[in-house]
Structure formats: C-alpha cells, structure tokens
Amino acid sequence: MSRPSTPSDLELMAHADGEHDDPELAARFDGDADARAKLDAIQQLGELVRGHLELSADDVHDAKFAAMWRRIDGQLVAPATGLWSRVSAWFDRYRSHVITGAISAGAVAALALVLRPGTTDLAAHAIDVRPVAQRAAPEIDSLETPGGSSTVISLADDDSNAAVIWVTPDESDAEEI
C-alpha cells in the first residue's frame, strides 16, 4: 500500500469550506501535518472574515433602521407648531375620511329632507286665492272703536270684496281732532 498523497490547495480550500467532506480526504489531512496546519489556518481566516462581515452587517442594519424610523416618525408626528398646521395635518391624514363623512352627511340630509313628514315650504306659505265669485264676504269677528262709533259696510264688485269699517269719532273727540 502506498502512502496517501499530500492534498492539493484546491482540495484544502474545498474541505475548509465544507464542500468536500470525503472521509478518505480527511484521513489524508490527519496523516499530513502540513496539510492540517494549512487547513486550520484557512478555517481561522474564514472565521475572522465571517465575523467581520457579520459585525459590519449589524452596523448597517442599525443605521438603516434608525434612518427608516426617523422618516416614519417624521411623517406620523408632523412638526405641528400652530393651530392651522395641526388642522391641515389632520385633514391631510384623514382626507378620505372627511370626504366619506361629507358624502354620508349629504346623503343623510337629502333623505331627511325627502322623508321628513310635514308641510312643505310652499304649503306653509300658500294661501289659495279663489275666484271672486267663490269668495265669502269678509267676516268681522270683533271690533272695538274706543272714542267713536263704527259702521261696517260690505262692498263687492267683480274685482274683490271689501269690508269697510267706518269709524266716526264721538263729538267730544271730534272737537279735539
């Protein structure tokens, strides 16, 4: 049986990276002190490089996260110093809610106006002006003429009816006038 040959540098690197875990190759490393020393050196160097990269990655992540949160915080808590800027910031944030609310309010108001029972404006103000022929003569419900006497006369023509309330002052009052 011949002595196992010395592993090549390529085989050393592959084994150190875990890409080549052949038991025969491992046996060859065990039997070769130089190869074992090289393999240990490569593995240590690899550990160093990986450790450094991981630490760098951590630093990068922290910085990135910090910047990201600063941006998010800046957007969420706007630098609202005055009342107007706070109001406008509120509207910026809830614009869609405000529009939705306004549209809902309009719809509710329209429904309320349409469905509300009771008289309409026209009905409240409208007094029917009937043709003269169908009108009743004016009725005097009560009449007081202090300091004078009164006579009520009804007039009618084809334009309209009229009640004439003729007040004649008493003689003493007439003298005053």
Binding site: V129, D141, L143, P146, N161, A163, I165
Partner: peptide, 17 residues
C-alpha cells in the same frame, strides 16, 4: 289714541278698509 281694534276673517285677495 286707538281708533279701531278689529279681528276679521277675509278671503285672500279681498280687503278690509
């Protein structure tokens, strides 16, 4: 001095004078 104090029911378009 009050001349008249009157309540009347009148058709729309008619007059109390």
């Amino acid at each position: 001095k009050q001349v008249a104090n009157n309540t009347a029911t009148v058709e729309a378009g008619d007059y109390v004078i």
